[in-house]
Design a protein around this nucleic acid. Structure first.
Lengths: 176, 176
DNA sequence: CCTATCATGTAATCCGTTACATGATTAT
DNA sequence: ATAATCATGTAACGGATTACATGATAGG
């Protein structure tokens, strides 16, 4: 047997197929772009290769449309659904790395100078505030689903990050 | 010419070499583990392969110790330092994805049920609080350097995330 | 009709991870 | 001595990104 293992991307695709029903890669791309893609993005090519890999593993099955373009339509199998449920049922206490390029530059800020750190802080603050506005404009009322509730963490993160960079800009760290 | 391009990991290594001076991969590993590794971690094997790649590109040079174990010692070259300064000087307005596995599970929470979502929220809240305590214990006074100031974002993030998951646990999203 | 954009897909490369493996050093 | 742990390194695999490429549709 192969050492095939499912990545978060795999489960993302499985979850989308379970939620939205049979989909073409392009439909997946669109669905991802306006929802989960806000906090977990990747290029569209993976929405072609990942279902293909999972088809080989039996978690997903592929059909072709009859007429016209004969696009591929993927749907989740019972095996795939079981794997997804297994994964969703494990609570996951692990935390992600922040892996923020701006923060990495700040970390090495002493190698350059306060001006460069300040420019970085201003740029980062602006970007976070912009993203915050985008998030705040997405929904009006309280979240209507678990999926919608995820935006809350996005908003909290952007607020925290914008405030952090503002404080860096106001009170730049000076090396001793 | 090769299409060699520097990744954030490359700059991380360059920055460590610029900050700490010539280092062996193991010294890099230790330095990373107790500082930048808190928000940008990777396995130690990359601290062997990455300097090797950069040596080929002329950004870093390698020497071997004389006696005993003849370990590799890497040091940044003038070319490497210039590349690092270039990178540090560009302000980087780009934002990272959150890419949080727990958040991904929450996103698909409607596929399982409120109990599973609650268990997830409790586990995530606990993990974030634990990490928060770790961060808060690292330094006593105000940050003494740009590097130390990065912990501020870590703390802000953990607080925001812990509060978010607490709110999910208290007020679980119910699908309509 | 022509062209710009959307839609759909493939190929190749490479970074990052996982796994393996072996020298040194310390403790008992 | 010998086990255990720390230190150091390599090999191989595969997922993720980048780049390329072509088919449809709509607008002018």
């Amino acid at each position: 047997m192969s050492t095939y293992s499912l990545t978060p991307t795999s489960y993302l695709v499985l979850g989308c197929l379970a939620s939205a029903g049979p989909s073409t890669p392009y439909e997946l791309k669109q669905a991802v772009a306006e929802s989960v893609g806000y906090f977990w993005s990747f290029p569209h090519s993976q929405l072609y290769s990942e279902p293909a890999r999972m088809t080989a593993a039996g978690l997903v099955q592929e059909e072709r449309e009859e007429g016209g373009r004969r696009r591929r339509v993927f749907s989740i199998t019972a095996v795939g659904r079981a794997a997804l449920d297994d994964w969703l049922t494990q609570p996951t206490a692990g935390l992600p790395d922040i892996r923020d390029v701006g923060l990495l530059k700040l970390f090495f800020g002493d190698l350059v100078g306060p001006d460069e750190v300040n420019a970085l802080a201003v740029a980062q603050r602006g970007a976070h505030e912009e993203r915050l506005k985008l998030y705040e404009g997405l929904f009006s009322g309280p979240p209507q689903s678990a999926a919608e509730s995820t935006i809350g963490l996005g908003i909290a993160w952007e607020r925290a990050a914008a405030a952090f960079w503002a404080s860096i800009a106001e009170n730049p760290p000076k090396p001793t």
